[in-house]
Design a protein around this nucleic acid. Structure first.
Length: 268
DNA sequence: CAACAGGCGGGAC
DNA sequence: GTCCCGCCTGTT
């Protein structure tokens, strides 16, 4: 609380990262002041005159938050890959300054994206905040803790039919029959395949877990927004080869831009 | 009222 | 393999 660490960072925009696709509990507590969580760590971050003030020690910043915000990766280089002739992607990137693929906790991402399926953001956030209320400190509940919560209780968190998916994967994980950590370091295709063996994880959720939980930037989650973007702007096919190794970064720019400026509405 | 939201499982074929 | 349907629930 007392200790603060200020640093200048480029290609980071807390508003863009918090409000949309990958984090369901980075809340703006006050104007320009955000709370972030990573496992047992939490801190406030504020954006001020192009600098970022972390309400933690310099040691904690470098130990936890530097990696969390993926600050070792130069996003300006990735943006430079974009095809000069691709007006749509160029526009999307201009509007998505500061988007990064954060390195969040794998277990939290697995559960969060199961919750996210066929769902909307306010409801997702509400369910996840109820899950986090299960712990004393507001951190995300472990598999062991979740496995002890009844399906009925889970249902009361507004999870709908996903209650059983959560219950089953929590039991399986607590029993050691599913080991999330075993996915770390696997090639993208293998990780995706193993994830899809879990009841409640399909193609899209598996891809999201690969991107946001395993930092596989080759994955390219196709949800309803991206599907519409692809058919509206890439009828000839999206140039995956060109963006090899960074497809998900492009996906994030497109997704974010579509939230601001939906393809469907723009077309009519 | 129906359609949709950051889809998935299950069954038909 | 592809297609199609039902599904929790809040919002438009």
């Amino acid at each position: 609380m007392s200790e603060k660490f200020t640093i200048k960072l480029s290609d980071l925009n807390l508003k863009a990262d918090s409000g949309f696709s990958q984090i369901f509990r980075m809340n703006e507590e006050e104007e320009g002041l955000y709370r972030v969580w990573f496992r047992e760590h939490t801190t406030l971050v504020e954006e001020k005159d192009g600098s970022f003030v972390f309400h933690c020690s310099k040691e904690e910043f470098y130990k936890v938050w530097y990696d969390y915000f993926d600050l070792g990766l130069d996003y300006s280089k990735i943006k430079a890959l974009v095809d000069e002739k691709d007006e749509y992607l160029k526009t999307a990137i201009e509007h998505g300054y500061g988007i990064r693929i954060l390195r969040q906790d794998l277990w939290e991402i697995i559960i969060s994206f199961i919750v996210s399926q066929n769902n909307n953001i306010p409801r997702i956030k509400n369910s996840i905040s109820k899950l986090c209320a299960l712990t004393k400190d507001g951190s995300f509940p472990s598999a062991e803790l979740l496995s002890r919560v009844s399906v009925e209780e889970l249902h009361s968190y507004g999870l709908g039919y996903r209650d059983e998916y959560i219950h089953r994967i929590a039991l399986k994980t607590a029993a050691g029959e599913f080991v999330p950590e075993s996915l770390v370091g696997l090639p993208y295709e293998e990780a995706k395949k193993k994830l899809m063996e879990v009841h409640g994880i399909g193609k899209k959720v598996a891809d999201c877990i690969c991107v946001f939980g395993l930092h596989c930037l080759d994955a390219f989650p196709i949800d309803t927004h991206v599907k519409q973007i692809l058919s509206a702007h890439y009828a000839e096919g999206f140039p995956f080869e060109r963006y090899k190794g960074y497809a998900s970064v492009m996906q994030q720019y497109m997704f974010y831009y579509d939230l601001l400026n939906p393809v469907k509405l723009a077309k009519k």
